[in-house]
Every structure is written in C-alpha cells, then in structure tokens.
C-alpha cells in the first residue's frame, strides 16, 4: 500500500508584500490602488508579508490580513527578524520565514556553526519544574532551568544546559552536534545524559557523583563528570 501522505521539502516562489509604513490606513489605500490596476492578477495569490518597519501597532497584522483577504489575496506567511512582529504572526496564524539570504546572515550562521557564542541571544530561561512528559528545547542557544527536571521529562539545547535543581529526567546538550557543550546541574539524578549524540545511562553514571552538583562534558568521545566546586 502506498503511504497516504508524504512530506517533501520544496522551493517555491511567492509574492512578497513589503510594507514600508506602520499606518494601516495608508497601506490599505496603497493596496486598493494596486489591485485596481489589475484586479484579476491578485485573485487567490498567496502572499508573504515582509514589514521593513519595526514596532508595528499590536493589531496591525490582523488588520492587514483582513484587508488582503478583502482584496482577494491569501496571506500565508511573514518574513521578519523582529521578535514582537513574529509573536503577532503566531497569534494571527501566519507561517514565519527567516530572512537569511544576505551575505551577513550566512556569515552569522557559519559563525554559529563553528560554536562561537552569539552575544545577541541569551539562554532560554525556564522558571519552573519540567514535569514528566514535557519537553523543552533551546534552539541555537543555552538552556537555563530554575527548577527541577522530573523523571520522564526531556530538556534539549544546542548549547549548554544549566539546571538549578535536580536533573532526574533526560538532558541533551549540543543537540546539533556541538561537542564543547556541557551540562551543569545542582543535583545529578538523571535517567540519561547526552552531549552531541553521545550518551550515558543512569546505571553507568558513577555512584560517587550521584546526587552531587556536577558538570558533564565530552572527553575522548565519552561523557565524563566532574564535581562543581
């Protein structure tokens, strides 16, 4: 039997609507004018919105989507690096595209891949205990948890993981392969500790350091521990 669905990566070209103004009235007027010139051309065209201004009013995106729909267009996504606008997009149900075409972006990505820290992105901070069945992932950065990681919970970070509490679940540092990533815990009672894909199970963790404040790191392709001072 053939599978009912299949996921494939594909490169498509979209119409990008650059928005240079944060005045919704102005934008609406300009759009109406454009559409009037060639009404058929814009019918059912998928559109990706790319604001070039920062700090849009909170309802701007929602209003813009409504206006686009009234003009027959189909807003499907948003392209921006601005965190506040990205959050608006999530509420509005828009997909988010990264701006990563320029030379600068490529250079930055290369730098990240080399393992250099990215000063602009602080670690992801979680101020509660991670319970059984819950997962937390800090993409491209460190993960800091003030609370415990309970049995059956999983925490991932592309950078380091810090747990100010007991680590009783599973922790995966350097999730994209950074072998210099480390795990720091106030109390080690983990089910599994993994760095850059190399892991150690609870039963193989030396009993002497169980329950202690330790750091885990990779040495000769093995997960090693040392007590924190």
């Amino acid at each position: 039997m053939t599978q009912p669905i299949e996921l494939k990566g594909s490169v498509m070209s979209f119409t990008v609507l650059k928005v240079h103004s944060d005045d919704i009235g102005q934008v609406q007027h300009a759009l109406a004018e454009k559409v009037q010139q060639a009404p058929g051309f814009f019918q059912n065209v998928p559109v990706v919105i790319e604001p070039t201004v920062t700090a849009l009013p909170p309802t701007f995106l929602a209003q813009l989507m409504e206006i686009l729909r009234q003009n027959g267009m189909m807003p499907i996504g948003l392209r921006t690096q601005d965190e506040a606008i990205r959050q608006q997009a999530e509420f509005a149900g828009l997909g988010i595209f990264d701006i990563e075409t320029g030379k600068r972006a490529r250079a930055e990505r290369a730098k990240r891949e080399k393992g250099e820290s990215c000063a602009a992105a602080p670690g992801k901070l979680v101020l509660k205990t991670i319970r059984s069945g819950q997962q937390v992932y800090a993409k491209n950065r460190d993960l800091v948890i003030i609370g415990s990681v309970n049995p059956g919970a999983e925490v991932y970070a592309d950078g380091h993981i810090h747990v100010y509490g007991a680590l009783k679940g599973r922790a995966f540092a350097g999730a994209q392969g950074d072998e210099t990533a480390r795990i720091f815990v106030s109390r080690l009672e983990a089910e599994l500790v993994c760095i850059a894909g190399l892991y150690i199970l609870a039963e193989d963790i030396p009993p002497a350091i169980r329950g202690k404040a330790v750091t885990a790191f990779l040495q000769n392709e093995k997960v090693e521990f040392s007590e924190l001072p």
Partner: peptide
C-alpha cells in the same frame, strides 16, 4: 508518582 507528575503538567 510519575503519572501524577504528568497530570500536573
């Protein structure tokens, strides 16, 4: 206890 932890989440 683990299942209770899950339901608390």
């Amino acid at each position: 206890v683990r299942d209770s932890d899950r339901i608390l989440g």
